[in-house]
Nucleic acid binder design. Structure first.
Lengths: 364, 364
DNA sequence: GTGAAAGCGCTAACAT
DNA sequence: ATGTTAGCGCTTTCAC
């Protein structure tokens, strides 16, 4: 190694300097650093990985979608991974991808990673996929438990259940007799979590559990669901599994002459950036993406670096319900004359004195 | 190597099989594959990289934001990179990050990548950063030219200019006397491109160039800008540099009693998923993220694998203006009685027979 | 068509 | 505090 020669020391000493190992005199350290600087030296990671058996990189399996949730989670993961000194390798899976998550994990294993993060897992199409999801490095599953075989399997961010309960409860507290649910695709753990939270809250209070309408996270699917729901005069409150669907839903409701929130209250999920600015400003649950990523990665890295120690215990992230203007008490039980609303026109309730930025926030 | 022993061949032959090199008999290939299968063998990438001097991975510097544009671009890049057989390393830069893009590039170089993609570059805070952005591998800059020093510097996706011209022209064609512009942060190349396109169109037709209002891409900033613009009775058309700002803008306009599109037309940029479902459905320009990523990466990989050949020539992506309901001809010059609209309420034009999904699309 | 030898640039283990 | 010796698992080069 040229740096060693230039600094007049052994290769091993250079290695020591760059790895911040003890037992290098200040003088030697300086000489090495200078020599390296002068030569524009940067240590070869491939050689390092080969010799040490560790790649110092973490792989993440992410959904190939610009949906706010998955994208935010990925960003959070990147930041934390980099802070811990690891590099990040990313592999996306598209929904319906034949190779799926198993294929993505495999490709990460091929590349060589010290740990794997599976973000927002969904069920694979074929049942036999179950067994094939195995890794020989620790795995962190974000958003839900998942059938993975690995030396250590960690879970974080599975708090959607509680958040969904909070959202549903908010509607109930407003006086609604029951709450309808516009769910995400059933294959998504995240969607099932939210659905469970909703159902749990309803049954715990002895309320009716109306049939679930399932969307695909898109505003378009929310719109379709909205047309359906608008038919049913009994619907006074809907909890949508994400904000995009809530927005589509509100539009369909408005077009059908059902005002939000006067006739129907809607709660979303995610708190996407435009949520405060649509009409009406959306009441929603903000997901703590960064906190989840941070907490999960901390435990994953701990496990990577202390394979024999006990894994760190999980900790629950906060629930953050943002109350804006899409929710209100239900309309009076003895409704005014049916002719009261004109069928062909609608508005989203902009007549309220509005301050979109705000919305009171409730920690729970 | 155990596989070699089990198959009764040399190490080199195993290598040949796994690299699809010629000159291996079908029989031997089978034996090797079987042995590998049996042993659960997967080749060690670190060793491969060390011996060959190529890491077969590409690094991408991305903005650490869930904004639709950057996120979509990243997804496109990942897909294409994986299709070409490379691995993807990701480093995010936050706006205002002291290390910035230069730091990100450096960390990628440290990790060892064969090429670098810089997505959506923005100006660094300090002027002296210019010189430090150098890499010893080919670089692809997505979205704009950028001062980078590297063996090869490629550019793709710098067509925002043309798209902005199309958007502005659409408004002019509708009969508006001039068009206001709600720009993105000036530090972003993408924002400047759009601004340039807007200005060019206006001056080319001898129109007035109203002062630019600058936002930060967020709906909140669009809302602020909207309050300002609503004061000015001359404003009949606004081209917003992204959809989020357009949505905030529309809300502010609505609150001020200015109807969209009857009083003011608004065009957005991006075509985010909810664009068709907000009120009114947004006319916007769809960005061809996938096409840009694909085209750019194809050229980058070509350069990586044929360092001495001439780089492939760039090709222009299509422009896709989606006309929905937020644009219309300007109000009559001799306006109807002022009392026609009730000041305290507003709607976004939902009275139109609406089909949010649609919107006619114009290839240009 | 196949194999032998050398070495990529590090780190691990053991000197000194 | 610093140096020596071995490899890590592959690809390269050249020989057969």
């Amino acid at each position: 190694m040229d740096v060693a020669r230039l600094a007049g020391v052994s290769q091993k000493t250079v290695s020591r300097v760059f790895n911040d190992e003890p037992y290098v005199s200040a003088d030697v350290r300086r000489r090495v650093l200078d020599a390296a600087e002068q030569l524009g030296y940067r240590r070869n990671n491939a050689a390092r990985a080969l010799a040490s058996g560790r790649t110092r990189s973490i792989g993440v399996v992410s959904l190939g979608t610009a949906l706010y949730g998955p994208a935010s989670l990925l960003i959070g993961v990147e930041r934390v991974v980099r802070d811990t000194g690891y590099a990040l390798r990313v592999v996306n899976t598209m929904e319906g991808d034949p190779a799926g998550v198993a294929g993505a994990v495999d490709s990460l294993l091929d590349q060589g990673v010290d740990g794997i993060v599976i973000s927002e897992p969904i069920d694979e199409a074929d049942a036999d996929g179950q067994a094939s999801l195995r890794a020989d490095v620790p795995v962190l599953v974000l958003g839900a438990p998942s059938p993975v075989t690995a030396p250590t399997v960690l879970t974080a961010g599975d708090g959607a259940d509680l958040m969904a309960r909070t959202a549903t409860q908010h509607l109930l507290d407003l006086g609604h007799v029951t709450v309808h649910h516009l769910a995400g695709p059933h294959r998504w753990y995240a969607a099932r979590d939210r659905l469970d939270g909703w159902r749990t809250t309803l049954t715990a209070q002895g309320r009716d559990t109306p049939p679930v309408v399932e969307g695909d996270w898109s505003a378009a699917s929310g719109y379709r669901a909205g047309r359906e729901l608008a038919e049913d005069g009994d619907v006074t409150a809907v909890f949508a599994a994400n904000d995009d669907m809530a927005i589509g839903l509100i539009r369909a409701l408005a077009e059908a002459g059902r005002r939000v929130p006067e006739d129907v209250s809607v709660v979303g999920f995610d708190d996407i950036p435009v949520a405060a600015y649509v009409t009406p400003p959306l009441t929603t649950v903000r997901q703590p993406f960064d906190a989840v990523a941070q907490e999960g990665l901390k435990r994953l890295v701990h496990t990577i670096e202390n394979p024999d120690a006990d894994p760190l215990p999980p900790s629950d992230p906060p629930v953050d319900l943002i109350v804006r203007s899409s929710t209100a008490p239900p309309p009076c039980r003895t409704p005014p004359a049916r002719g009261r609303r004109t069928a062909s026109r609608s508005d989203g309730g902009t007549h309220r004195p509005s301050s979109p930025n705000g919305g009171q926030s409730t920690q729970g």
